[in-house]
Design a protein around this nucleic acid. Structure first.
Ligand SMILES: [Mn+2]
Ligand SMILES: [Mn+2]
Ligand SMILES: [Zn+2]
Ligand SMILES: [Zn+2]
Lengths: 150, 150
DNA sequence: ATTAAAATGAAAATCGTTATTAATTAACCC
DNA sequence: GGGTTAATTAATAACGATTTTCATTTTAAT
């Protein structure tokens, strides 16, 4: 599975088309616009968020919420988007063409600040190994009150 | 809010009764059995898991799933149980009379191994501070394949 | 252009959880 | 103990997010 980190949109689109072809799936305008919108908005979207934004920006496009769900799942399976699950707020997606990071989330205004920490990443591997696990994935979210909300 | 770490069942029950009284809530057999079952089973339960176990162990007791949901929420608000949210598998509860820990989860058999790591806990505070956040909470789950499933 | 397979939107179904309600029970007072 | 009142209950309806179904449309290959 290729990493899509820091691909241009053109390259990303080509990669997406490759994946579709390999799986005998079809390239549609709905799929294109979903990818394009995710690429150009680095926020973290719920399916509903993304659906609403696309409806607003492309009033002429016919698109249903089910297609957004389906496409986000497809993109996630192919590592083009990643998701974080935020308890009550549901699952949020973001384009995966940025390096791995975790999230610091404000419990008041829901702002999300991204961070990277190599030390923690290493410790995670150490701990998993101690427990006899092969680490495949991790979830690390820091909840708090952001500067503006304090 | 008192910590209930390493209380005996007797002490824990007394603490629960105090909390109920302070909030003008009533002590019921359903609430007692839920607490007792959680105390004596250190697993991580979904509401449904706990409901089924209680139905099985106390066939004479009248209890509905809504009461289990309500009681788990009540216990969590009062820090007698804690919960972890596992994406698709839903929310799981465990008795909170053990020290803080995080979870290493097998993606194959769903086994959960608990761990504590002070270094990571410290790093979390450092990171939050760097981002201008006051840390209130965190989520840290390591997913992998356990020794038995490899 | 023809054709077959895949994709779509709308609506129905599903699933976990929460709210409603009428009946039951606990806690308090005498 | 019996009576009163407010809290609690189980059953069921409602809910919201997500998934499935299905008839129709679109894509991609020939
Ligand atoms: Mn992110
Ligand atoms: Mn645990
Ligand atoms: Zn904030
Ligand atoms: Zn396992």
């Amino acid at each position: 599975m290729n990493s899509i980190v820091s691909l241009s949109y053109k390259e990303l689109l080509a990669e997406f088309k490759n994946i579709l072809k390999q799986n005998q799936l079809k390239f549609t305008s709905q799929r294109e616009i979903i990818l394009y919108t995710l690429y150009n908005n680095t926020q973290h979207f719920t399916s509903e968020d993304l659906y609403m934004l696309i409806k607003q920006e492309y009033p002429e496009l016919s698109i249903g919420i089910a297609t957004v769900y389906r496409t986000l799942s497809l993109l996630e399976e192919n590592n083009i988007v990643s998701s974080i699950s935020l308890g009550i707020q549901g699952k949020k997606y973001e384009i995966a063409n940025k390096p791995h990071h975790d999230h610091n989330i404000c419990e008041t205004c829901n702002k999300i600040v991204e961070f990277e920490n190599d030390e923690i990443e290493e410790l995670q591997h150490t701990i998993a190994k101690e427990n006899g696990f092969i680490l495949t994935n991790h979830l690390m979210q820091l909840y708090g009150i952001c500067k503006e909300c304090q």
